[in-house]
């Protein structure tokens, strides 16, 4: 009897999650009346705004990942090595983006960095792009920090550091050649999550008026019927691709350590 309930719950869960996706995919393929086609996908891919916004978001994601790695890896390493007592506080700070809505963060940014402020980042497209990247890095912080911290937990940070120091290595060498390669899989996990967040993010990009993929999806959804569905399927594909890559690199580490 218990088994029936368990199977029932599982089936309900699967249907609950997959039916909307199946329906949406089905709808996205019905642009041509009476037949299935990839017409909606062709239109999306052919739209220059898709290419522009997607390229913009991918570029932003890459910069966010680089900035996130440069910020989080040394921070998490230092906390683990020298300031373990501060770890709960840093963890709390990194979790704040989960409880503070993006709209609050972006309004704070606009207030702090507007054209009449001491650092007028919103005064230029370049400055706004940088501000947006910082915003994305903030949103990705809980995932990136946890991934890196978990990676650091799997190695003996203190002893490896001392071993490298006794061989003449300074902090930069230790971070670049010992710590980072040994938490590479964790960093990649954090990077893929960051990528997925940046690609789908709407609020910050819209309020900072940048041509990102999130606002484009919203715009398309408000004015078209089939293309938004195709776009949603594409966005899902990208996210799942990222999650798949996380799984792949995690398995890769189980079989052999990453090479320097």
């Amino acid at each position: 009897m218990k088994k029936i309930w368990a199977w029932g719950a599982l089936l309900f869960g699967i249907l609950y999650f997959t039916l909307p996706l199946v329906g949406m995919t089905n709808f996205s393929l019905k642009m041509r009346r009476g037949e299935y086609s990839f017409e909606a996908y062709a239109r999306v891919f052919g739209d220059p705004r898709f290419q522009e916004t997607f390229t913009y978001s991918v570029t932003q994601a890459l910069f966010t990942i680089v900035f996130g790695v440069l910020l989080v890896v040394p921070t998490a390493y230092w906390i683990r090595l020298k300031l373990p007592g501060l770890r709960p506080y840093v963890e709390f700070v990194t979790l704040l983006p989960l409880v503070i809505p993006a709209i609050v963060i972006v309004f704070g940014y606009i207030r702090l960095y507007n054209t009449s402020s001491w650092l007028p980042l919103t005064g230029s497209a370049f400055g706004t792009n940088i501000l947006l990247m910082f915003g994305y890095a903030t949103l990705a912080l809980p995932y990136m920090y946890r991934a890196v911290d978990t990676g650091l937990r799997t190695i003996d940070v203190a002893t490896l550091t001392e071993a490298a120091q006794s061989l003449g290595a300074g902090w930069t060498t230790i971070l670049a050649r010992i710590i980072l390669p040994n938490v590479l899989v964790a960093v990649l996990s954090g990077a893929f999550l960051t990528f997925a967040i940046v690609i789908g993010e709407f609020t910050m990009a819209a309020l900072l008026n940048r041509p990102a993929f999130g606002p484009y999806m919203q715009l398309l959804g408000a004015n078209r019927a089939y293309e938004p569905a195709a776009l949603a399927v594409i966005a899902f594909g990208i996210t799942w691709g990222c999650l798949g890559l996380i799984q792949l690199v995690s398995r890769f580490q189980k079989s052999a350590p990453p090479k320097a």
């Binding site: 071993a163 490298a164 120091q165 006794s166 590479l184």
Partner: peptide
């Protein structure tokens, strides 16, 4: 520590997991 000309061997080996034997010795 990195300015002292000292070699140290640790209880937990402390070999760099991302490097092979040659690279560890060459570090």
């Amino acid at each position: 520590p990195n300015q002292r000309n000292i070699g140290m061997v640790f209880q937990a080996y402390a070999l760099f997991p991302n490097m092979n034997v040659h690279d560890n010795v060459a570090f």
